[in-house]
Design a protein around this nucleic acid. Sequence first.
DNA 1: ACAATTATTGACAGCGCTACCATCGGATTG
DNA 2: CAATCCGATGGTAGCGCTGTCAATAATTGT
Lengths: 343, 343
Amino acid sequence: MGRKTTKSGKIRLTEVAKLAGVSPITASRFFRNPEALSLSKRERVDSAVKELGYVPNLAARALASHRTEVIGVVIPSLTNNVFADVLRGIYDSSEGSRYSIQLANTRYSILQEEKLLQLFRAQKPAGLIVTGINQTAESRAILESMNCPVTQIMEIGDAPVDMMVGFSHYDASFAAISHILAQGRRRIGFLGARMDPRVQRRLDGYRDAMKAASMFDASLIVTTSVPTTVTLGGTLFADLLAQAPDIDAVFCVNDDLALGVLFECQRRQLSVPRDVAIVGFNDLEFMASAVPSLTSVRTNRYEMGRHAVTMVIDAIEGRRPQEPVLDLGFQLMVRESSVPPNT
Amino acid sequence: MGRKTTKSGKIRLTEVAKLAGVSPITASRFFRNPEALSLSKRERVDSAVKELGYVPNLAARALASHRTEVIGVVIPSLTNNVFADVLRGIYDSSEGSRYSIQLANTRYSILQEEKLLQLFRAQKPAGLIVTGINQTAESRAILESMNCPVTQIMEIGDAPVDMMVGFSHYDASFAAISHILAQGRRRIGFLGARMDPRVQRRLDGYRDAMKAASMFDASLIVTTSVPTTVTLGGTLFADLLAQAPDIDAVFCVNDDLALGVLFECQRRQLSVPRDVAIVGFNDLEFMASAVPSLTSVRTNRYEMGRHAVTMVIDAIEGRRPQEPVLDLGFQLMVRESSVPPNT
DNA sequence: ACAATTATTGACAGCGCTACCATCGGATTG
DNA sequence: CAATCCGATGGTAGCGCTGTCAATAATTGT
């Protein structure tokens, strides 16, 4: 009579309920709201589940409950190291919870984002994490109509769809430029690639900081919509030198560009930081180990992912945060590339 | 009477069928096997779907059909650039298909992998992509019992669970070492971190190439189980120099380590390649742009992702490949860091 | 021209679970 | 002590779709 088979046969909730001597609905509640069961039944169901090796059928659950346990994540890039860290935070935080992550990649296209959100809407996710605050009106309408918690990540702003976790790219950039100015540099170039909204705000911070110091000059700015690479950093730097040969510092919107600039300086026998100071953005791991070590703005990417998931899950389960906008800030990591060579 | 509401109300397949004047099952077939419908009905259903803005309920579909349209992907790391490229290929190829990707991260733990595979088994995915060929016996048993196409990626071997796409890490490493030896270098150090199975095979290739040239010396090898970073490359190189001061070349199991070695050489005023040749692995983008440019082994990561998905989808739909093992090979990208300075 | 075959189509039942409400003791209250 | 309430439990009905198989229409061969 040993039909307590672990074989992936027909173990449904009904079987569990039978073994535990309760009704199926009680067994169902064991998973969704165990506190509602009396201790004795809870234990009986628990051991029945274990004995039978029961695994819930998620499709049936979703169909019957009109809900899923999926958190959708919309990011613009899979190759950008920045998002790799965010994703790691997201996956780390979602493990152990009942929710699973469904990833979607917009490739920096807001139209693609709109399509992906439509897809998500059809799936009725339990929660959603989207990148940035520059959705199209249509995307925003979808998000607002979704009837599930939404967290916008990577930056913060005034009008969250629901919740936000990020930092001010404008402030971070402003702080970086202020630091460079404080080192006595006057002709600070700006190098930007793949000018997404967050990079635009870094440019705004640069512009305002330069204007505040009466150092602004449009010919110090070189940008392109091309995706970032290290090689591109060198190219942009060459362009910058061509149009403003007297620069004494470069602010790069990300660390890959900064590394490219460093290599280009080596190629041109320019001394860093004597001839040119270099400051990057994101503080990827290699920045500390370059020669000279490179100054950068550290952002809390992993934590951003963790918080985003936690906020969404908490909101799904009714624990809404006091404050919907969470500012994770940034830190300027001052290194050799931006301070006087002989301090 | 204009109840052709686009409002996300109650548009089920039944409504579509009614509007199209067919039975629900015919409407259902429109999605799963449109060729089976007569042209007239196909068009009627098609326009009904569009008019009503019908979106299939995936949960109901999964419940009724005992299948999902999910392809599970098991990778060991989210931060490793190598997998970022593979993932990009996977997501790019899955877009436009009916299948969605479910990602899971083992963090290089084969026990974690086992757990994740158990989870996947419960969800009955349509297909599975797993990293490497070193699953536990238990994992392998799960994979074989899953009754869905499985593709192992990143490397190739003799006994595929089902299909494979990758390349020989042993051969790639052997080729790299042969190249360095051909440049007249004799004391070639080996730097390895996070010694996962694929890195181990690179070590095997190194060892055999060195032995074949009668140049093998265990004191030339420095490895650690710590995860790779650029900084670690410098540290390992320092260790190597300490235990074998006479080295004239370094082979690094990945490009991050190689970059770290380059920086460490700059710090120690060692000339590359005159004093030390450097060769990396993977050919990340920055290798070409470093000063000097760094030799590396190019691997077709993006293509690996693309092929893996294509193979799985084809197999799901009954188009099994002639040859279950696909070798994508590698290319040695010879650059300044490994050739004589004055050629 | 007629049986045999093949392409289309539909009826029925049910996938495994949970929403909704009903039930039923027992505790609380005036 | 009856009226009320509450926590714990169960019964009934589907959720929206598709597998199975039978029924019908179209096609073909001889």
